[in-house]
Design a protein around this nucleic acid. Sequence first.
DNA 1: GTGGTCTAGACCACC
DNA 2: GTGGTCTAGACCACA
Lengths: 133, 133, 133, 133
Amino acid sequence: MTSLAFMFGPISPAAPGPLYEQIVAAVKREVAANRLNPGDALPSLRSLAAELMVSLITVKRAYEELEKDGVIYSRQGLGAFVADAGGERLREQNIEAAQAALRAGMAAGRAAGLDDAGLLDMLNHILKEGIDG
Amino acid sequence: MTSLAFMFGPISPAAPGPLYEQIVAAVKREVAANRLNPGDALPSLRSLAAELMVSLITVKRAYEELEKDGVIYSRQGLGAFVADAGGERLREQNIEAAQAALRAGMAAGRAAGLDDAGLLDMLNHILKEGIDG
Amino acid sequence: MTSLAFMFGPISPAAPGPLYEQIVAAVKREVAANRLNPGDALPSLRSLAAELMVSLITVKRAYEELEKDGVIYSRQGLGAFVADAGGERLREQNIEAAQAALRAGMAAGRAAGLDDAGLLDMLNHILKEGIDG
Amino acid sequence: MTSLAFMFGPISPAAPGPLYEQIVAAVKREVAANRLNPGDALPSLRSLAAELMVSLITVKRAYEELEKDGVIYSRQGLGAFVADAGGERLREQNIEAAQAALRAGMAAGRAAGLDDAGLLDMLNHILKEGIDG
DNA sequence: GTGGTCTAGACCACC
DNA sequence: GTGGTCTAGACCACA
């Protein structure tokens, strides 16, 4: 397998959140987008650490969190690989995250005096303009 | 002025987020709900610290953040008061928070493979069942 | 609160399993035995590391795993505490572990040619003699 | 001798435990089931490594562990064979493993607050539903 | 003072 | 070569 580091985008200590969370998010993004599939090997701890110019331990911590989330698995002497149910797990987690965020948005909107119609309007508005709009 | 601390609900280290943020959120909630109105005095630093059983510096930091957000203002020797435009400021902030949360929910939902219709379904579902449903 | 380290028993690199797992097991044992109750403070990372003569990071890793398992929670600036549902979580985990171990025992027993009666005999035998018998 | 590798089932890095332990377990399983009998020849190191798509050294380590356990013996230039007392050794080991697992299950069950009756109930429940139930 | 994050470097087990 | 564990030490945010 050739280098996968190009997928990981910019990892920066200036970005919000711990470095290892940025790596976790990058891997999850790739798995969710099916650019990393079950059985695919991830970059080795040492190679990814070198490419991202972060400590080996920072990458290891990211891989540990990914393994805890059931997205990847690690084998001594072999490397780290995308778990068979990795995509499934991610999808469930994302659904839950989406619901939690929508609930939070509703709570904030109601605190601002919006009713249900106003909230739907807001969501429709965002949908039309795109997430970045 | 009688004690306002009863409004602040449970401030607990077990809750997510720093203690001072919990206090900030509690004050904002009271202002948004018009239970605290422009000109109303907030509890003194020391009395609130005592009632919530947190350190004085923690309450001070919360009041500083509230003042920075334009929700309250402090006068040396007099205490802290709800700002005239406190409700307005809050409303704007809540709208922004709602938009940000909805965008985050959409991003997570899309990562899970949901389309726009699916997202609207999810929001409608949540609206019908209530925020806690 | 006085020192809790006396509860943790011997932590030794010679013992089987990682040091941090020994700490995890010790805390879980204390919680399961109700010698540590919801809300109780655990020893600080630094103090426990000093008392057990292990690295701060080793203790931190143990506390991270305990937090992941829902047994404790940590708050910056305050310390680590037994979670409200800590005992519940542990009980569920122990039930699952017990079932898994019994299944494994049955599988091994059957591979040795034992039938169901033989397995029950074996368990009764062990129960009478005690776990250490 | 025809290939025996078909007996070894899936050897996968995704499975729990080192690869060589999976091979050891597979051979022990075949011997315990009398599908491999005393004097039977095992596949050569190289042929088994090729069929399982693992390294030769991994198979070698598995055979070494099996020889250490008295289940097989190796003769230079001839290959590896099931030991005369292989089945007996295995039976003893399985009995010990079963006892150890049952003790572990009891310990976990007691930590969860179960008494002896509860443990017997659990075992009976598992026996009725089958190991996979 | 507390925990949260990151670093550099070591030794071990597995392949 | 790989990941798994442990160490010593730094800096930051929170109380």
